[in-house]
Design a protein around this nucleic acid. Structure first.
Lengths: 347, 347
DNA sequence: TACCGTCCTGGAATCGTTTCCAATGGAATC
DNA sequence: GATTCCATTGGAAACGATTCCAGGACGGTA
């Protein structure tokens, strides 16, 4: 015995194929028919075939989430949130790697195969070709990040500038005057905007000494290497360093520990993203929360809304930042006690 | 103009639909035909439809990876590895949550919808119904974890017992005699086997004082709470604690820090899974590596092999454990320097 | 009784591919 | 020149669902 199809169910129930389909899908059908069909389907253990249904309905019940590196906790947190939002609407989540710029464009073009009903994309680098592909796509897409003004694509963006300003303000309030920014690759969206935020925040005050460095990647290792170099060569002993993300921030803290620089007494460190890592490090890493889970949720909601009504005007949502202060910027011996109290990072 | 179908390409190329399909899929076709078809397809921007293809070929090019909680770094590491293995064979990855026991069974049954060609499942709890569903499934599945002996399903398992034994041995060598085990929920696969490993390892020596506790969940928070309670009530000051996983281990270290217990001098802590978190904490967390990435890779390979040949006899692969020693068990001031050297966790 | 409207029903078309199978044409062999 | 063979080809039948559309049954009203 092979697969049980709807035809088998129809035969067993003694009604037509059409009626069977209607009965199973809650379309118009008499109570008697529904009853017979339900029973027959249950007896046979009928399970509808996705491919056939997709072919006919032009819907897959799947959404894609594409990022550069699923290893980065910030993407994991987004994914979790997105999964929970779309699962509530019975969508499955397909994960993809964006790869390099060409691969990203290829990924967007591939949407036309129709293997998903929508895409949430968080590209590290945005090219013209990518924007064009997104605008041309018949499959709805939402971008988490920044697109050029006027791009006809839904986006949800973080307020990097505002977030970094919060960090600078916090550090200055704590007495810091010599503040460095350790960026990641500058040709990326986060690299560019977080850096810009730092420049602006620093420019707004005239009592600060500042400089920008950059790590080769958004990783702990790269952060460690870059920080080590800074510590060795800097003629200015920095009061504080703001890292482009938490991973790089952790790398800085390790480098400091290795050289006997104590955090936060000798050096304050601030990360960005407020991932769960901030609570694992010791001391806890003060971090700018750019709302990754909220961005994930927002993106999922935008996508669902657009799939509902494709004619909607493109929207750009901005999620406000906040600062989560931990031990890496203030000497608070009880800074780890939140595990008992349940405060801290939003879950 | 609507979707471009293969019929449009056929017309444009001036050949039959059948020939067009063959030409595009590298089946037998004359060079001239291939050329014409290629050109026509390119001009029209033809992209084959996944649903139609799946319906006909009974293949989707998708695999599912199902775990309890994508937030746990050990699953993220597995997923990364799995993704890279299957992407090389042009498979996409669908992520699912296992949820509770019933939901897991439901998930396996759902495979019969045919939305994926295979499944990699890492269930926290294994029920008879789950095993039955897996054995009955027409879609190949591989389980990362333990199934009852004789279950006709491919599995890849960690050597929890061996791994915990390594940890005990390491601690004893370091001088520890009073060793506690902080488990997670005991009715889960990892809870059960890691605990059993501890009991056996301890039983093999007669000079040890030991006890087992359990945290309510496999999280930092639960580890912190349980450890705090242990520190408050224990009449035995423990030399070392082995945690059921890294998250709980980190929780223990935080609890220790809060109470002024210094690690590793007053208390040694060992985690399990050797996730990236072990290098974020300070000091670094010594951890039993149960080969999560290798298990992920193995699982992916087993799955691909079984899809290739469904008649294969079920296989059970065991991945050997190792111990990664870090600062939480030995006072090594340079324990964080590996970021510079590139050693440590396999990537 | 005739007519109309409502509610259900089933036949058949359709979604876009792949692939079976019979047919064609030309080259090669005798 | 007839026969065999091989390489290609195109028509048509799947794959398994949903949905259009015409028609039948039935009840109510004139």
């Amino acid at each position: 015995m092979g697969r049980v199809t709807i035809a088998d169910v129809a035969k067993r129930a003694g009604v037509s194929l059409a009626s069977t389909s209607r009965a199973l899908n809650g379309q118009v059908a008499s109570a008697a028919t529904v009853e017979k069909v339900r029973a027959a389907a249950a007896e046979l253990g009928y399970i509808p075939d996705s491919a056939a249904r997709s072919l006919r309905t032009r819907r897959t019940g799947q959404l894609a989430f594409a990022v550069a590196d699923i290893g980065n906790p910030v993407y994991v947190e987004m994914m979790r949130e997105i999964e929970s939002v779309v699962a509530a609407e019975d969508y499955r989540l397909v994960v993809s790697r964006t790869g390099d710029a060409d691969a990203t464009v290829e990924l967007v073009r591939d949407l036309n195969r129709g293997y998903v009903d929508g895409l949430i994309l968080s590209p590290l680098r945005v090219t013209d070709a990518l924007v064009a592909a997104l605008e041309a796509s018949t499959v709805p897409a939402v971008v988490i990040g920044r697109l050029p003004d006027g791009a006809g694509v839904d986006t949800v963006m973080a307020d990097s500038e505002g977030g970094v300003a919060l960090a600078v303000e916090h550090l200055v309030t704590g007495g810091a005057r010599r503040i460095a920014f350790l960026n990641g690759p500058v040709d990326t969206t986060p690299g560019r905007f977080r850096h810009a935020g730092f420049l602006r925040a620093v420019a707004e005050r005239n009592d600060l000494v500042s400089a920008e460095y950059s790590a080769e990647d958004f990783t702990i290792e790269a952060g460690y290497a870059a920080a080590t170099e800074i510590f060795e060569n800097a003629d200015t002993p920095w009061d504080a360093v703001i890292a482009v993300n938490d991973l790089v921030g952790i790398g800085i803290m390790h480098a400091a520990a290795t050289r006997g620089i104590s955090v936060p007494q000798d050096l304050a460190v601030v990360g960005i993203d407020n991932t769960s890592l901030t609570e694992v490090s010791h001391p806890g890493l003060t971090s700018v929360d750019l709302g990754s889970t909220r961005r994930g949720r927002k993106a999922a909601q935008l996508l669902l809304a657009r799939m509902e009504d494709p004619e909607l005007a493109p929207r750009a949502v901005r999620v406000p930042p906040s600062l989560q202060v931990r031990g890496s910027t203030t000497a608070q011996p009880t800074s780890v006690s939140r595990f008992a109290s349940g405060e801290g990072r939003p879950r």
